[in-house]
Amino acid sequence: MAGNTVTRAQLSEAVYQEVGLSRNESADLVESVLKEIEESLIRGETVKISSFGSFYVREKGRRIGRNPKTGEEVPILPRRVLVFRPSHVLKDRINGELSAKQPE
């Protein structure tokens, strides 16, 4: 696929262009948004962003895994994982725009 990578730098730049704040402040705000989302998830909340998707925390139970190299059984402890469910709007946007121009 196209193969470019977007990072915090581009997000800050977009915020800078869109809102009348300094570049520094824009970068800080991007960081604050991510942080606020992280903190909410750590509290176990679901974060729903309309027309984008939702992030939620799933509790996984203990299970027995195996070291694929040695075949040794290793217990995998209960843990929490983050799951992202894209909204239909996002899925449709991705398909509308990608499949239109690249049959691959």
């Binding site: 990072t7 977009a14 990608l98």
Partner: peptide
């Protein structure tokens, strides 16, 4: 506007087939 811009940028990037790495 800041919050919307962030998610909009991520969506645009994905629609372009780009990766967004944070």
């Amino acid at each position: 506007r800041i919050v919307s811009t962030i998610f909009e940028e991520v969506s645009i990037a994905l629609a372009r087939g780009d990766r967004v790495e944070l």
